Computed example of a mutant assay.
Amino acid sequence: MPTEQTEPATTAGALVTGYRLILPDDWAQIPLRHGTEEAVRSILDEAFRRIPPGSPEDKVGPYKRELERRFRAAVRRVQEGNALDLYLPVKSADNVNLGASIVVSETLLPRRHEQTAHVEPTDVAVQLLVNDGADNIDLSSGELDGALAVRREHVADADLDRGADLGSRRVEYIVSVPDDPDRWFTAAFSTVGGGDPRDELADALVEWFDAVMATLRWRRG
């Protein structure tokens, strides 16, 4: 079913007020500006309901506390990046953990009033993507719902300090928001695959994310 950004991510007078992405029902949306606690609580309650009835309380209690601690910590880390939404595959009926996530955010570039030369959105996007110095980046460009989109893919090493125990395959779409060249929409996908970010599961999930991004549609006020 369509998942729609309801937080108006816009400046006064802008026509684009949000976005829509079509995701499977087993992916849950966690809005990070408003309604975060309600979404987190609903996801945790659903996870706790999957615990088999009659399980010993001395095992269930610590498990639930640790699950909640880890989950809330992960959400907080994303919130600290000032993102709009976090999507996680948390409703799988067969309890398969895909080890994947999608983080949606928005970037507003500083306005340079003294600059007279026109800067193409493509030039700005490429500069943003390559400035971090990461190696082995796959970079391409195209359009999504009529807007310039730059796709960036790479493999990131494990980072224990940030809670990443395994390396991950990462794909980012940075999209120029229509009618405002200083605004950029970013959807960042990450997966550990089956334990190796270059394995067949990771490949399949990257293809799936590309298909999800093809459903991007702007929400206009």
Rank of each mutant, 00 (worst) to 15 (best):
Gly167Arg: 01
Thr186Phe: 00
Trp184Arg: 08
Leu67Pro: 02
Arg69Leu: 12
Leu109Arg: 08
Glu80Phe: 10
Ser190Met: 08
Arg77Leu: 10
Asn97Glu: 15
Ala134Gln: 13
Val78Ile: 13
Leu128Phe: 13
Gly195Ser: 04
Gly194Ala: 11
Ser168Arg: 10
Gln115Phe: 06
Ala149Tyr: 04
Val126Leu: 15
Glu172Trp: 03
Thr191Ile: 01
Arg76Asn: 11
Asp180Thr: 04
Ala73Val: 13
Gly163Glu: 01
Asp94Thr: 07
Gln79Glu: 14
Glu172Gln: 09
Arg183Glu: 02
Asp94Cys: 05
Tyr63Gln: 14
Asp145Pro: 01
Ser101Trp: 05
Val103Glu: 07
Gln79Ser: 08
Leu144Met: 08
His113Pro: 07
Leu88Tyr: 11
Ser176Pro: 00
Val124Asn: 05
Leu139Gly: 03
Thr107Pro: 02
Arg152Trp: 00
Ala147Asp: 03
Asp179Gly: 01
Trp184Leu: 02
Gly142Glu: 12
Gly146Trp: 12
Gly99Arg: 06
Lys64Ile: 01
Ala83Glu: 06
Gln115Asp: 11
Ala117Ser: 12
Ala134Pro: 03
Ser168Lys: 07
Leu98Trp: 13
Arg162Leu: 09
Leu67Glu: 09
Gly133Ile: 04
Tyr173Val: 03
Tyr63Phe: 15
Ala100Ile: 01
Arg162Met: 08
Leu144Gln: 05
Gly99Asn: 09
Asp182Met: 10
Glu66Met: 14
Asp159Ser: 03
Asp182Ala: 14
Ala73Gln: 15
Arg70Gln: 15
Leu166Gln: 13
Asp182Ile: 01
Glu120His: 08
Leu109Met: 12
Val171Phe: 08
Arg170Ser: 04
Ile137Tyr: 00
Gly163Val: 07
Pro121Ala: 09
Ala125Ser: 10
Val192Tyr: 12
Ser140Leu: 05
Leu166Ser: 06
Leu129Glu: 15
Ala73Met: 10
Val78Leu: 07
Glu80Asn: 09
Val126Ser: 14
Val126Ala: 15
Gly163Trp: 06
Arg76Pro: 04
Phe189Met: 00
Val130Ile: 12
Arg170Ala: 02
Leu108Gly: 08
Thr107Val: 13
Ala117Thr: 11
Ser176Thr: 06
Arg151Ala: 02
Ile102Glu: 03
Asp94Gln: 13
Val78Asn: 03
Phe185Tyr: 10
Asp138Gln: 09
Ala164Asn: 11
Leu109Trp: 15
Gly167Leu: 05
Lys91Gly: 05
Asn131Asp: 14
Asp157Asn: 04
Arg72Gln: 13
Arg65Lys: 13
Ala125Phe: 08
Ala158Met: 04
Asp132Pro: 02
Thr107Lys: 07
Ala149Arg: 00
Arg111His: 13
Val171Thr: 15
Gly195Ala: 06
Gly194Leu: 04
Asn131Thr: 03
Ala149Lys: 02
Ala73Asn: 09
Asp179Pro: 02
Ser190Val: 01
Val78Met: 08
Val90Asn: 12
Val192Leu: 08
Leu129Tyr: 12
Val177Asn: 06
Asn82Lys: 10
Ala100Cys: 09
Ala93Thr: 06
Arg183Ala: 04
Ser101Ala: 09
Arg65Ser: 15
Ile102Met: 11
Val155Asp: 00
Leu88Pro: 03
Pro62Tyr: 09
Thr107Cys: 04
